[in-house]
Write a protein that binds this DNA or RNA. Structure first.
Lengths: 344, 344
DNA sequence: GCCCGATTCGTTAGCGCTAACATGAAGTGA
DNA sequence: TCACTTCATGTTAGCGCTAACGAATCGGGC
């Protein structure tokens, strides 16, 4: 291989000066054409564009970032999970950001603890990310964020709805839970049992809160909660317990996979759904309509959440927002066949 | 706001020269410490590190990229889907790449057509990505890749197993299908029906090929294929047809969600699984064990696929590979309760 | 003591781009 | 006609970093 500095580099990527030379203008004029500045003669513009096409020139973003001090990069921190909610959110966000011309760089963390989150955020700051989005559904993640310097716009998704002083987009878990519980109550059930998600998730806490408050408002007694994680396996275990108790006629599961496990447990124990017990889930996973029976569930609109997060971040980047705004997205109820009236 | 050039910029990010000044060395020595070069005295190294810590200095990647001409960035092109396979793959890849110190930038495309893929790849090349990974499970996506200039290392995941001249990592769909079909045949079924994925997906084609060849080898006749997409809804529709035909005793579904739809159709039509008909899926989604009945399925190891893709890409980046290597990951069978012997 | 090689550092010159200012030509109003 | 703005372009100076080279210092072997 030849020595880079001792020979003319052949086959190197064309740079702005190459385009300028070919078009017979200065590099700065090329820059102006590229950035859509006014005050460039139409004919010059065309000549430059032709030269760009002829050379196959592509601007070097690193150089631009260095010169301007800002990048078109949005950093995302998310958990390494294939859970439906987070991954839908991520996909929607990536698509929305790309549509706005942003590059999105995702940093997955194995666990949502303070150190991991801090490291991931720091990583993005090192890239000079224009803005950062953290999907922070647990208390530990949210706490870590409190320590982050505020010179980079940052939006939290699914963070602590109670915490002040951070731009936040979240699904109104409580409202979603109310929808589910009220639906069951209106079908005639005296009370509703709850299989909850992991206690340290805000989503789980919010759904539980909504469940409990709705029961209280209706004057119904709240039965003990069956704690679980988000998996079908833990839903199944909880379901086996609930199936043994004849007084259980309605169950609100913190997500659809838990509900799936519950459906399976009920089926195994010979308790018909919705004949003997009604079940409502949360998330509306694409296959929820094909469970046995098709699952009534609560649907959060992830596209909207993603769009809101992006818009909040962009206004943070442009300096319009001080970073304390919050947007709440309200979910809707999707009625299918897993809810019926109690038999007495 | 003050004019950037007419006043000393206050509060600007510390740069290498600031660290150098504080440590009483040249900026180049700071660079050496940062990049772990030898030939720096231990005492100097410590002084530099102390200065870095004191100032909270973080290197500017854009400047480094500009100076070196290479980035630590891997571009990924993927479809905007929440399908279990692709999204698991993506998550696994992001984690693996981050562990190697790479930044991964994901570009989602809405449809896997030529233009979208080309644009997405071009986008990454503009970023001077060190390497590109394309998850290209359809023929259209794969074709688009043929036109891409080869100066950037590129690895295709789930691309055309038949195409030569591209670095490729793929799951051995055919072998997976053989596992499923042979399992059903060994249970005593005379033949196995197939509900396939979309025809333009290599995954679907490979699974179908494996199914057909295994039947041929066993001397069984291959019944007509029920075409579907990957959704539970289309599995359900196909299932309703199959449920009507008493001769159907074994079904191999191209993925677990199709299988779920089939299970539901069989249930509705009063055909017991696995009593009357056996079903095998593909993917081993986390909740497959909680279907009614728990689903026997084929499990591709996405972590391994991701790891192979990364290692292939890295050897491409370091110039060890000419970009024609291929790695094939063989899936395994996960036996649960949805397969039984035919009643005669 | 002297020479040679290794070690440790500093100096210089870009990487490709944008922002700010400079320049010259053309138009405008009195 | 002349000052005065507007437009179209060129020139210059960095952004923060690394690579290449050069200079000083140090430690032996003879």
């Amino acid at each position: 291989m030849d020595h880079p500095s001792s020979s003319v580099r052949v086959n190197r990527e064309p740079a702005m000066t190459d385009v300028a030379r070919l078009a017979g203008v200065s590099h700065q004029t090329v820059s102006r054409v590229l950035n859509g500045h006014p005050n460039v003669r139409e004919e010059t513009r065309l000549r430059v564009r032709a030269a760009i096409a002829q050379l196959g020139y592509r601007p070097n973003r690193a150089a631009r970032t260095l010169a301007t001090g800002r990048s078109q990069l949005i950093g995302v921190v998310a958990q390494n999970s294939t859970l439906f909610g987070p991954s839908s959110l991520l996909a929607a966000f990536e698509l929305a950001a790309a549509a706005q011309g942003f590059v999105v760089s995702v940093r997955r963390v194995k666990v949502l603890d303070r150190d991991s989150i801090t490291a991931a955020v720091e990583h993005h700051r090192e890239q000079r990310a224009a803005g950062i989005v953290v999907i922070a559904p647990t208390a530990a993640a949210d706490e870590a964020l409190a320590e982050v310097p505020t010179d980079t716009p940052l939006v939290t998704v699914d963070g602590d709805p109670e915490r002040a002083g951070a731009a936040l987009v979240t699904v109104d878990q409580e409202a979603g839970a109310r929808l589910a519980v009220r639906h069951l109550l209106e079908a005639g059930h005296e009370t509703v049992w709850h299989v909850s998600g992991p206690a340290d998730w805000f989503d789980a806490a919010g759904r539980m809160r909504g469940w409990r408050r709705t029961l209280e408002e209706a004057g119904a007694e709240a039965p003990p909660v069956s704690p679980a994680d988000w998996s079908a396996a833990s839903g199944y275990r909880a379901g086996l317990m609930l199936a043994r108790m004849p007084e259980v006629t309605a169950v609100f599961a913190a997500n659809d996979h838990l509900a799936l496990g519950i459906l399976r447990a009920m089926y195994e124990r010979g308790r018909s759904v919705p004949g003997d017990v009604s079940v409502v889930g949360f998330d509306d996973v694409p296959e929820a309509g094909y469970f046995i029976p098709p699952l009534t569930t609560v649907r959060p609109d992830f596209d909207t959440v993603a769009a809101q997060a992006l818009s909040l971040l962009l206004s943070g980047i442009s300096g319009e927002e001080n970073g304390t705004a919050r947007r709440v997205v309200t979910p809707t109820l999707v009625e299918r066949d897993s809810v019926g009236s109690p038999t007495r």
